[in-house]
């Protein structure tokens, strides 16, 4: 199996490592670069736990090979905090609303809703449910996640 050197920008930092052509992006992030915040749920693109942002768009990192991400810009859950470790309004709202239980789908949920709020700072409930429609959660029944996103959107709007 051929090995490839891959260099990409993860959460603003350039990182590189070697990967076989068949290595998925999520395995590369987790096992080669040590960024374990992104989780693996189904490995067939249904559950959304492995969602990351690539060049501004959410992608399933289990459905991409690492070589396909070479030279691209990736944001993972570890990159949502501010430069001094301060929580983003969305992270803070997830905490305030207890928008999780086991925390396993949470990175994917944050990535999906982070991207939503960048595109649509004032989503209604249906739009939020649409944005997380491809992310499965087995703990919450989704409601506290929806409430968290609503709170985050409101806070960001009040602040601006």
């Amino acid at each position: 199996m051929s090995e490839h050197k891959i260099t990409l920008t993860v959460n603003g930092r350039e990182m590189s490592g070697h990967a076989e052509a068949r290595l998925t992006l999520v395995d590369f992030l987790r096992d080669v670069l040590g960024q374990t915040g992104t989780h693996i749920g189904c490995e067939h693109g249904v559950c959304g736990a492995c969602s990351v942002v690539m060049d501004g768009k959410p992608v399933r990192s289990c459905l991409m090979f690492a070589v396909m991400a070479d030279g691209h810009e990736i944001t993972t859950v570890e990159g949502l905090e501010g430069p001094n470790g301060e929580l983003s309004p969305l992270q803070d709202a997830f905490w305030e609303n207890h928008a999780m239980q086991c925390g396993y789908c949470t990175p994917g949920m944050l990535i999906a809703t982070h991207t939503l709020l960048q595109e649509n700072p004032d989503p209604d409930e249906a739009e939020i449910r649409e944005a997380i429609g491809g992310n499965l959660c087995r703990c919450t029944g989704y409601q506290q996640i929806v409430e968290a996103v609503q709170m985050a959107a409101k806070k960001v709007q009040e602040a601006s």
Partner: peptide, 21 residues
């Protein structure tokens, strides 16, 4: 009350079994 455990989950700092290498 905010749930103590949540903080590590929203920042990608949980310690799940697959995270132990």
């Amino acid at each position: 009350r905010r749930v103590t455990e949540d903080r590590r989950f929203i920042t990608g700092r949980g310690n799940f079994a697959a995270d132990y290498n």
